[in-house]
Amino acid sequence: MTRLTFAEELEGAADRIADISRADVQIMLRRAALMLRNVTGIALDPKVEESLAGLAAEMEVSKSELSRQ
Rank of each mutant, 00 (worst) to 15 (best):
Arg30His: 06
Val39Glu: 14
Lys63Thr: 10
Ala18Asn: 14
Lys47Phe: 06
Met35Arg: 15
Thr40Gly: 15
Phe6Met: 01
Glu9Asn: 09
Thr5Gln: 11
Ala13Leu: 12
Val48Ile: 11
Asp45Phe: 07
Ala43Arg: 12
Glu50Asn: 03
Ala13Gln: 06
Arg22Glu: 12
Glu65Lys: 12
Met28Phe: 06
Thr40Asp: 15
Leu55Ser: 02
Ala18Val: 13
Ala53Ile: 03
Ser21Ile: 02
Lys63Gly: 00
Leu10Gly: 01
Ala18Glu: 15
Leu52Trp: 06
Ser21Arg: 06
Ala56Arg: 01
Arg22Ala: 14
Arg31Cys: 10
Asp24Asn: 05
Leu10His: 02
Ala57Phe: 02
Leu34Glu: 14
Thr5Leu: 05
Val61Cys: 08
Glu50Val: 00
Glu8Gln: 12
Leu66Phe: 03
Ala7Cys: 05
Glu9Ala: 12
Arg30Phe: 05
Leu34Met: 14
Leu44Glu: 07
Leu36His: 08
Ala56Trp: 01
Phe6Ile: 02
Gly54His: 02
Ile27Pro: 00
Val25Ser: 09
Leu52Cys: 09
Phe6Ser: 03
Ala13Lys: 06
Thr40Asn: 15
Glu11Lys: 13
Ala32Gln: 02
Ser64Cys: 11
Ala7Asp: 10
Glu8Phe: 06
Val61Ser: 04
Arg37Lys: 15
Glu65Cys: 09
Ala18Trp: 13
Asp45Thr: 10
Ala13Tyr: 06
Ile27Met: 11
Ser51Gly: 01
Gly12Phe: 05
Lys47Arg: 13
Leu29His: 01
Ile27Thr: 14
Leu29Thr: 03
Lys63Ile: 05
Ala53Asn: 10
Thr2Arg: 09
Asp19Ile: 09
Ala53His: 05
Leu34Tyr: 14
Glu11Ala: 13
Ile20Ser: 04
Gln26Cys: 07
Leu34Arg: 14
Ile17Ser: 13
Lys47Ser: 12
Ser51Pro: 00
Glu50His: 03
Leu36Arg: 13
Ser21Phe: 04
Ser51Lys: 06
Pro46Met: 07
Glu8Ile: 04
Gly54Lys: 05
Glu9Asp: 10
Gly41Ala: 04
Ala56Ser: 08
Glu58Trp: 01
Val25His: 08
Met59Leu: 15
Leu44Ser: 04
Asp24Met: 01
Leu29Phe: 07
Arg3Ser: 07
Ile27Ser: 13
Leu44Asn: 08
Lys63Tyr: 00
Ala13Glu: 03
Arg37Ile: 11
Arg31Lys: 15
Glu60Gly: 06
Thr40Pro: 07
Thr2Asp: 14
Arg30Val: 05
Ala14Asn: 08
Ala13Asn: 02
Ala32Thr: 00
Leu66Lys: 00
Leu44Ile: 04
Glu60His: 08
Ala7Ile: 01
Asn38Pro: 00
Ala14Met: 11
Val25Arg: 07
Arg37Asn: 15
Ala43Pro: 04
Ala23Lys: 13
Lys63Met: 11
Arg16His: 14
Leu10Val: 07
Leu34Gln: 15
Ile17Asp: 12
Val61Glu: 00
Leu66Cys: 01
Ala33Glu: 11
